[in-house]
C-alpha cells in the first residue's frame, strides 16, 4: 500500500498542473501563450530529460523564466491583451533572450559536469598516486607482498 502512495500523489500533481494549465488557458490566454512560447525550451527540455531528478530541466526552466518575467510584466501592464502578447512575441529580443538563456543553461549543464568531473578526477588521481607511493614504500620497507 505504501508503494502506491507516491504514485497517487504524483498523479494528483499532474492533474492539478493540468487543471492550472486549463484554467490559465481559459482565463488568461495571452499569458498562457506568452509563457508557452517563452518557456518553449524549458518544455522541450523537460520532455527530453530522462533523468530522475530533472535537474537540467529545472536549470533551463529557471534560465528561461528569468528572461520571461520582463515580457510577462509588460503584458500584464497592457492588461493581458492578446495583441500585446503577440506584439511581445513578435519582438525578437524578448523571445531570443529567453530562448538564449535556456540554451546557455542547457550548454552549461553539458559542459560544467565535464569540467567539474575532470577537476575532481585529477584531484583523486593525485591522491591515489600519493597513496600508491605510500603503499609501495610500506611494501618495500616491510616486505609485504601484493
Amino acid at each position: 500500500m505504501s508503494g502506491t502512495r507516491p504514485a497517487r500523489s504524483r498523479n494528483s500533481a499532474i492533474w492539478l498542473q493540468g487543471l492550472a494549465c486549463g484554467a490559465l488557458l481559459a482565463f488568461a490566454s495571452p499569458t498562457a501563450l506568452l509563457l508557452a512560447v517563452m518557456l518553449c525550451p524549458a518544455i522541450a527540455c523537460t520532455l527530453a530529460d530522462t533523468g530522475t531528478d530533472k535537474g537540467m530541466s529545472r536549470a533551463v526552466a529557471a534560465a528561461c523564466a528569468a528572461f520571461t518575467l520582463g515580457p510577462l510584466w509588460h503584458l500584464w501592464l497592457a492588461l493581458d491583451r492578446m495583441d500585446a502578447a503577440i506584439a511581445i512575441l513578435c519582438t525578437p529580443t524578448s523571445v531570443c533572450l529567453a530562448w538564449g538563456a535556456g540554451a546557455i543553461a542547457w550548454a552549461l549543464c553539458q559542459v560544467l559536469p565535464v569540467i567539474i568531473r575532470t577537476t575532481w578526477d585529477a584531484r583523486e588521481d593525485l591522491r591515489a598516486k600519493s597513496l600508491a607511493a605510500e603503499l609501495q614504500t610500506l611494501r618495500e620497507e616491510w616486505d609485504l607482498n601484493e
Binding site: M56, A59, V60, A62, A63, L69, C109, I116, W120
Partner: peptide, 23 residues
C-alpha cells in the same frame, strides 16, 4: 563522482537562473 558533477552543475545553473530571475 560523475553523477555528483552533473548534479552540482545543474544546481549551479539553476542557481544562476534563479539569480537572473531575482535580478
Amino acid at each position: 563522482r560523475a553523477d555528483a558533477a552533473r548534479r552540482v552543475s545543474t544546481e549551479i545553473v539553476t542557481g544562476l537562473g534563479l539569480i537572473a530571475g531575482l535580478g
